[in-house]
Amino acid sequence: MAKPEFEFFPVTDVEWTVCPGDNPLITERILSKDPEGGVATRILRYQPGADSSAMGVQIHDFWEEVYILEGSFLDLTLNKTFTAGEYACRPPGMPHGPWRTDEGVVTFEARYRSVE
């Protein structure tokens, strides 16, 4: 199955929900999701002071593209801060995070599986 078809709609109509890991400072708006493949397009928000250390380093079995819309966060493994306007393309198996932010950060993320 694939993500459903949507025409333009206000993103603000989608509620913020707490992400897996249950940290109330880390929330997401799921814009589109493939229920069978488990991949989604979302807006991710870390409130000021959020820290995902409890979730550890993340490794996915899908592609993930991330664009930072506003704010910044620190990759605790790389000890490097990434800021608004920066982009990442992560192939399956690429380790990343955990993250911490003092000011907060909002990202746009597209996740998908390769079609071979």
Rank of each mutant, 00 (worst) to 15 (best):
A2W: 03
A2T: 15
A2R: 13
A2Q: 12
E5L: 14
F6C: 08
E7F: 11
F8Y: 09
F8P: 08
P10K: 13
V11F: 09
V11W: 02
D13C: 07
D13Q: 14
V14G: 04
C19D: 08
P20W: 04
P20M: 04
G21H: 10
D22T: 12
D22Q: 14
I26V: 15
E28P: 04
E28V: 12
R29G: 05
R29E: 00
L31V: 10
L31K: 08
S32W: 00
S32Q: 07
K33G: 01
D34A: 03
P35N: 10
E36S: 11
G37P: 04
G38D: 01
G38L: 01
V39M: 01
V39N: 01
Y46N: 01
G49R: 09
M55F: 05
M55R: 13
V57P: 10
H60G: 04
H60I: 03
D61N: 15
F62R: 07
W63C: 12
W63A: 05
E64K: 15
E65I: 07
E65K: 04
V66W: 00
Y67S: 13
Y67M: 12
I68V: 15
G71Y: 03
S72W: 03
S72D: 14
S72P: 03
F73D: 01
L76K: 15
L76W: 06
L76Y: 04
T77F: 03
L78M: 12
L78D: 13
K80Y: 05
F82D: 02
F82T: 02
F82G: 00
E86W: 07
E86F: 08
C89R: 14
R90K: 12
P92M: 07
P92Y: 05
P92R: 07
P92K: 07
G93S: 04
G93M: 03
G93E: 03
M94R: 10
M94Q: 11
P95H: 06
G97L: 05
G97N: 08
G97Q: 06
W99Y: 12
W99F: 14
W99H: 02
T101Q: 06
E103F: 02
V105E: 02
V106L: 08
T107I: 08
F108N: 02
F108C: 09
F108M: 11
E109N: 15
E109K: 02
R111Q: 13
S114V: 04
S114H: 09
